[in-house]
Design a protein around this nucleic acid. Structure first.
Lengths: 225, 225
DNA sequence: ACAGTAATCCATAGATATTTGGAGGATGCA
DNA sequence: TGCATCCTCCAAATATCTATGGATTACTGT
């Protein structure tokens, strides 16, 4: 009944799904998605943050837009890109998780990038309990614009680049829980090493803002801590 | 501190994730994943079911294996491929859902393939309730080997190709709920049209085995209905 | 209207993927 | 041992993707 005629449209449907898969098929694009998962950004800011030529970044963003993964907003002369929805962040996070679990190269690359890590980590639940108990300082070491776009309520914002200079802003006797973008972000790893080297007690949240938000935990925007 | 040195390994990590993304970047591979989500199969069977040259199918399967999405088992002269885990099926399902939601081409291709569909559908919950009540026949129209690998408990197996001949096996007075591989599988659509044309009351389950299994609903394997 | 900035579009060269036929490896069976 | 089957590996042609410089478009401010 349906065969030659349909096999064309069947392929069309799978190819349409594959168009979304293709958007996930480049390391550069995944890096852009990772940045966008922290909040909206202009093309120029994305290109700089990802270390890309502006033209190249724009091309990748067009690809992501074709797949419907990102949306844009014009503000005067610049264009802000953002994720098209939480489901996109979810897909991104799941891709990383599945890749980590099933592809041997990922844990290897992860260790090479983040450092093989025996250091203690804190889970969501532990952190929430300790925030309630009041015996912890939560430190967000991402760039300020990402902190402004959304952070853990009560967290202090000190970008890792400024941490050496501003370490005095942290109380000396309280343990610090550090977080950054997500499970594979280097910022919190660097910060914990830095704080520990300065004799502070510091541990990393076991993942970061991406997973926190996807777990529907409370998020605050703006500067009001 | 870390920059040029790390940018290499950082890119390596993202590229490793992208390797998994690339596995999702071809319609043919997604079709293979869709088939594998129903149960394990040999290379030859997959090639035939997907309408691919054997060599081409093998190449795609190697790509999927590189990404860790599939695993193999040798049985005599033939090699059985299967999904490496439920998380892979989950990733596949989420990709389709996100693509459907955010990419205009998907609903269009879907309607072209499945037919624009005003017909009534039944949800998981409704079906379970009606199975309990006993006033429904559940019909699985997938190929028998997929039925054997796992089906809804109590479902009758009549492949859609044999349905015209075997329609007498279905009670005439009871409504039939038809299901197949998943939300985008044409088999159940065809079967409902066919049954309705023969004066039977038939509706489609709103998705299929893939989503049923991922929802952790009861699945039975083998022939014991 | 003009200049300046941000981003996209276009063309192209270089790099990757896909498909396929044919050769080669592994297993089972006579 | 020899042969058939199932699958993978190899090589080459074709198609697609990526990166980038230069041109173009969209907007702002003077």
């Amino acid at each position: 009944m349906r065969n030659a005629g349909t096999s064309g449209t069947k392929a069309a449907l799978y190819d349409a799904f594959a168009a979304s898969g293709k958007a996930l098929a480049s390391g550069k694009r995944l890096e852009l998605l990772d940045l966008l998962a922290q909040g909206e950004r202009t093309v120029d800011a994305l290109a700089k943050a990802a270390g890309l030529n502006l033209t190249t970044a724009s091309a990748h963003l067009q690809t992501l837009k074709q797949a419907g993964f990102v949306a844009t907003r014009r503000e005067g002369v610049r264009i802000h890109y953002r994720l098209a929805g939480d489901d996109v962040a979810q897909l991104f996070a799941l891709l990383r998780k599945v890749a980590d679990r099933h592809q041997a190269a990922v844990p290897a690359a992860r260790d090479a990038y983040l450092g093989e890590d025996g250091a203690a980590e804190v889970t969501h639940e532990e952190l929430l309990a300790r925030i309630d108990a009041g015996n912890v300082v939560v430190l967000d070491v991402r760039p300020p614009e990402e902190y402004l776009a959304g952070h853990i309520p009560g967290a202090v914002c000190i970008p890792v680049a400024e941490l050496t200079d501003r370490i005095g802003e942290l109380p000396e006797d309280t343990e610090v829980v550090v977080y950054c973008r997500g499970e594979y972000c280097a910022l919190a790893y660097d910060a914990v090493r830095l704080l520990t080297d300065h004799g502070r007690r510091a541990v990393r949240l076991d993942d970061g803002m991406l997973e926190w938000r996807l777990a529907d935990l409370p998020v605050r925007a703006g500067t009001t801590a």
